[in-house]
């Protein structure tokens, strides 16, 4: 029986990192869309999802870009997506932080290069989606303190809370017509908290994941507004 109790304690400690998978804080999401041109996509055409890297500090997290690529290329109304790394390698050095086009007009000039045009045709590139934004902690309070109690068992007490905001905007360039087709934005806010009475129980608001899922749905709808068959 004593062994069983010790075993349970060890199991409980080992399971603590898994608790966030069971609980999550509340997240609210706001989506916005600005359409500047009609859109549509053929089954063989591709979109490139790229993160803006011209800012030194506030670069979009690679996890968000990877998530957006994954969610946009799967599920209902999925489209062919070329990832950021693959695209910038194939078009090196035209999309590096110091050389990437900032306006759609600059892109039109780049497309005058024969080698670029050939590569665009080779991968059937139709849209470039520029993603800007980050996830940041906006407010936090409280503390959780942990110590080893009598008998060698660690125990934590306290209450920790923080608010996170994920703000992302995607600008869609239509490569065929050389215009900006519009913008979609996703803003997710959420409060996370960790009450601790012996064992800390984290309730994490996954704002970045929520913003990614919402933006990928919105992006697919924006690019292909036709109802799915």
């Amino acid at each position: 029986m004593k062994h069983l109790k010790k075993g349970s304690t060890v199991l409980l400690i080992a399971c603590i990192p898994l608790i966030p998978l069971l609980f999550s804080g509340c997240v609210s999401n706001t989506l916005q869309e600005i359409r500047e041109a009609d859109t549509g996509i053929l089954p063989h055409e591709t979109i490139a999802v790229l993160g803006r890297k011209d800012s030194r500090k506030d670069q979009t997290e690679s996890a968000f870009i990877d998530c957006l690529v994954d969610k946009t290329s799967s599920g209902s109304k999925s489209v062919n997506v070329i990832s950021n790394e693959e695209f910038v390698d194939q078009f090196f050095p035209w999309f590096e932080p110091r050389t990437a086009p900032l306006e759609v007009g600059d892109m039109t000039n780049i497309l005058k290069q024969d080698k670029i045009t050939q590569k665009v045709d080779e991968i059937n590139l139709r849209y470039i989606v520029w993603v800007d934004g980050t996830t940041q902690r906006t407010d936090q309070g409280g503390t959780v303190q942990c110590a080893v109690a009598t008998g060698g068992v660690p125990a934590c007490f306290g209450f920790l809370t923080w608010e996170a905001g994920s703000n992302y905007e995607a600008t869609i360039w239509d490569i065929h017509s050389g215009v900006s087709a519009g913008k979609v934005s996703s803003e997710a806010k959420g409060m996370s908290f960790v009450p601790a009475i012996i064992v800390p129980l984290p309730f994490i608001a996954r704002t970045q994941a929520a913003a990614c899922v919402a933006m990928s749905k919105q992006l697919k709808e924006f690019i292909d507004p036709e109802p799915s068959k």
Partner: peptide
């Protein structure tokens, strides 16, 4: 199997 004290030391 590690006992609880050893587990804590490992952690």
């Amino acid at each position: 199997m590690l006992g609880p004290k050893r587990s804590i030391v490992v952690i």
